[in-house]
Design a protein around this nucleic acid. Sequence first.
DNA 1: CTGAAAGCGCTAACAA
DNA 2: TTGTTAGCGCTTTCAG
Lengths: 335, 335
Amino acid sequence: MVTIKDLAAVLKVSPSTVGRALAGDRRISDEMKLKVQHAAEEAGYVANRAARMMRGVSSNLVGLIVPDIRNSFYSTIAHALSRCLLSANYQLTLCETDDDRTLELRHIRELTSVNVAGIILVPSAKPLPEAARLLKMTPHIQLLRKQASLGEQWFGIDDTKAIFEAARHVLELGHRRVAYIGGTGELPTGMARIQGFRDAVAASGAEVEQMEELGAPSSTEFGREAVRRLLERKRPPTALVVGAVQNTLGAIDELNRLGIQVPSQLSIVGFGDELGYRWWGPGLTTVRLPVSELATACGLWFLHQLQNKSQIGLPYSSISPPDLIVRNSAGPPPA
Amino acid sequence: MVTIKDLAAVLKVSPSTVGRALAGDRRISDEMKLKVQHAAEEAGYVANRAARMMRGVSSNLVGLIVPDIRNSFYSTIAHALSRCLLSANYQLTLCETDDDRTLELRHIRELTSVNVAGIILVPSAKPLPEAARLLKMTPHIQLLRKQASLGEQWFGIDDTKAIFEAARHVLELGHRRVAYIGGTGELPTGMARIQGFRDAVAASGAEVEQMEELGAPSSTEFGREAVRRLLERKRPPTALVVGAVQNTLGAIDELNRLGIQVPSQLSIVGFGDELGYRWWGPGLTTVRLPVSELATACGLWFLHQLQNKSQIGLPYSSISPPDLIVRNSAGPPPA
DNA sequence: CTGAAAGCGCTAACAA
DNA sequence: TTGTTAGCGCTTTCAG
């Protein structure tokens, strides 16, 4: 391994001169800079990141903490961020929490210990206080979910509006027995979506029988169960609004299994825009969330922050609008 | 930031004692170890990896290089590896190449310069010689694709068998005009799959009209075009065997668009097992590749390697068997 | 404009 | 069983 000292020896100057020349210090003569750069190239010099980091310079690593990379939301985010950061020569380090706050903390620990330049995270339901403490020492941005304890930098989606639009869609089609299936109010996103549902019902001004099945948003099984429970009711809903991707997957598969006719017997609006939604039954009407755009915006802002260190930690929020994709799984209620 | 020295000061012992206790050195008394561990916990001590790395210890980072994390193959791999490595306290660093060998090289450079413990990669079509040179200095394993120039450690899937089974399935159903859509022979996996197709035709012993549409395996558009071209022939195929996920997605969507009746007009066997394949038309018959299992096996082997440094670089190959999932998209040929 | 020297936090050889 | 000490390669004062 060729070091700065070796170069210095070859050029018969001091190590500090070489270091400064390489760093483009303005006090070094251009002539010297050229000589050093040339010698460095010649010798195949590669700066030792570890040594640099020891001097307090943070690494070119950015931590990305998500619940599960197999979820297309998060893999889309990872992709967009990785592209975005690459342009500024940052690397993405991937951490999965499985929505477990202990794991979350462990990852944050790891990341800070390798001196990451920053952390982008989708926080768990109730982050541990220690996690909040550690994050204070590193530039970080929250994605999708927002936990006040973790700071004021957040990029997210208007969850309330997403479900509001979905619910309004079926209400305008004339449905008066409508069910919402989604995550509990434990996660901020879960809360916001439930709110969207209630708001839409209220805004419709109609007499609506509303039902809610709240559970684990990342469980397909819960989606299945919810559908079964709802359809076993004496007065089952005529329309379903789902507020989580995994729940949607479970729900639509269960509807298939039960042989329900969509939309003649039952209408449904899904969540997210997974591959294959359009192939399901008559094509699944769904709310698309602009995740890729969101992640890119987040990445750009993040880079901006790293460049202008002064602004680090400045409160900033960005809310992206969702998008209703109308296919054929929602129609007028059965007569 | 609390350092080893701080702990030493608190405990009134020397820094090296603390360091050794933390490292579990056998020469330190158990009593002292406990005291140190306790104090470390108390003070929220986190080892400074940069300093450690300067002492020659490699980091706890493992590089994962894949073409595109949004592809479910690769996100499945990332997930499985991340779980696997977590147990040994390694972190995954994600790199996307977009199948561009220049980018691939750049990532390998980055990774080696941060002293990763090792690299797991799905190599691009024709890695640059420089990439091979750099990889020699780091433990590394190839996944799925195998490039001889990058070493002899490889975990992959029996691609030939995968397509062999798919083709045999339709041949046994009686098809005699069969087309293969898939990647060119440029990638080793592409080659192997074409081979599987040809072998199956040969093995059938029947008079078979075989057609091949070879193009970019990661393009949905190519799948679409291939379907269109094949169906425009004077004597179009009665069965399609597809040898790439993205091609499959394009192909089945195009079949939908053209309103082809599957399997009565045309049979098709897809590749991979994407979410939604089972919802497509009559349910897509497809070859499942045990990617998750493969990645886990790879991760375990990798950890094993890192522990037994002696064996690093030992040639090792592992081939996992594919799995034909029979749904209803392949039936007897039209009369 | 350049040089000398002091560490960053940790590990390991050498002492005790 | 523990302490002392000398760096790893780089940046950054402080002196020329």
